[in-house]
Design a binder for these strands. Structure first.
Lengths: 230, 230
DNA sequence: CCAAGAAGTTGAACACGTTCAACACTGACT
DNA sequence: AGTCAGTGTTGAACGTGTTCAACTTCTTGG
């Protein structure tokens, strides 16, 4: 999931290794879709991929690391889908909503067992955690998308907030993903409703910064965010 | 952790069972503190509690369920500590900050292995999840505290938001807990800074609702929250 | 073409969480 | 005292993720 890292596994030295990794991930995803994460054993994955258990562990350090392949795949698909939106729209609401809604569309088939993935990603010590050093690259990519969302939009922000806003949007996306994980409504309608409701609110709040009082608060938010980083 | 449920385990029938449960929880907490959650085996817990592995499983359905005892204990302590704050203070900032900071104080000794607890609680299907049906009671208690924070404070809210505000404060507390889990700073100073920065912001934002524009947005937030529930 | 190291492969073995059938104790009612 | 149900106890056994030493195959430089 775009936001949930694409942990850099040790770059495969050979083309064959790369292919084998892809084979294993594909096999795992097939089984995950059928029976869920927990019910899928590493032995079954190895079988499905046509190799021994030990071999699977030669390519992936753990069952958890197997999920990285999934992240990478989804991440790439999302970036492609997003490019389309960002080329066509100029309104902030359309751009940001588009980014979030496309993600929901892409991730939908995996919603059922995303819970287990999320469970692992939620561990701060896990390399899958969105805040982990390992996923810094993916995080920066994702924040970069948000920067682009803002850059190409009609939204004018006070200087104090301009710097921090992409990171805040990323954080909001993380919140949406969190909501999505817990969303048991049909077709994740509730998460979609959240996006459609919250994005215009952000837009209106941002535009309100023309008022001095509001701008003061915005400045304080920026200061707080800055002080909490590092 | 107050916010993270106190899952109602089947009420022990006998006094002896109650005592045995307490013994096991105490033994587990001792070992958790020494070596962390993962490194503590159920066999070791059973040993430390002076019984067989099977017996431990007679009292607790799983290693995860063992953690409930911890939640219950911390939850009770927090409620006591909070009562003191709420009796003394009338300012919203002091009341809400007090509630949050006391929780950080109480939870501090467990911060190191809270990550693992959180990892389990993050699974929406886990009974330990703050959103699970099993923890509804604990959740309502916690929302009730927020209601009390507001009721006894000097903060005036627009009618539209008054109903939803306790739940929003609870949600914010969940966010703080999330931040806390990931906070690796000395003595969780960063989480404390977050509380000290964010609570006054909430206060100022709430007071800004005297402006019609802002009040309109507040109303929309309330509507959105309402539509996402249920 | 050969040797040697790197890359890849394997199944047995380990530790752990969890389950279970069998057994033991307790206490209340006849 | 005897029976019976409820409560408690036990260690063996199972399935799982993970490790590892031994083995095979591939690649590369001479």
């Amino acid at each position: 999931m775009t936001t949930l890292a694409a942990v850099p596994t040790p770059a495969p030295r050979t083309a064959k290794a790369e292919a084998t990794r892809a084979t294993i991930v594909a096999a795992a995803m097939r089984l995950f879709r059928e029976g869920g994460y927990d019910a899928t054993t590493m032995r079954a994955v190895a079988d499905e991929a046509g190799m021994s258990l030990g071999s699977a562990y030669y390519y992936f350090a753990s069952k958890e690391h197997l999920v990285q392949g999934f992240y990478d795949q989804l991440s790439a698909e999302h970036e492609a889908a997003v490019a389309e939106v960002l080329a066509a729209e100029t309104g902030f609401v359309e751009r940001y909503s588009g980014v979030l809604l496309r993600w929901i569309d892409l991730a939908a088939p995996y919603h059922e067992f995303a819970a287990t993935f999320f469970k692992n990603a939620a561990d701060p010590r896990s390399p899958l955690s969105p805040f982990s050093p390992e996923s810094q690259a993916a995080r920066e990519t994702s924040v970069g998308i948000q920067r682009e969302v803002l850059a190409g939009s009609d939204l004018k922000l006070p200087a104090a907030l301009r710097e921090e806003m992409p990171e805040l949007l990323w954080l909001l996306q993380m919140g949406v993903v969190l909501f999505w994980v817990y969303d048991s409504s049909e077709d994740q309608q509730r998460t979609r409703a959240l996006v459609r409701g919250v994005v215009p609110l952000v837009d209106r709040l941002a535009r309100l910064t023309r008022l001095p009082v509001v701008r003061g608060i915005a400045g304080d938010i920026a200061t707080l965010v800055r002080s909490l980083r590092g």
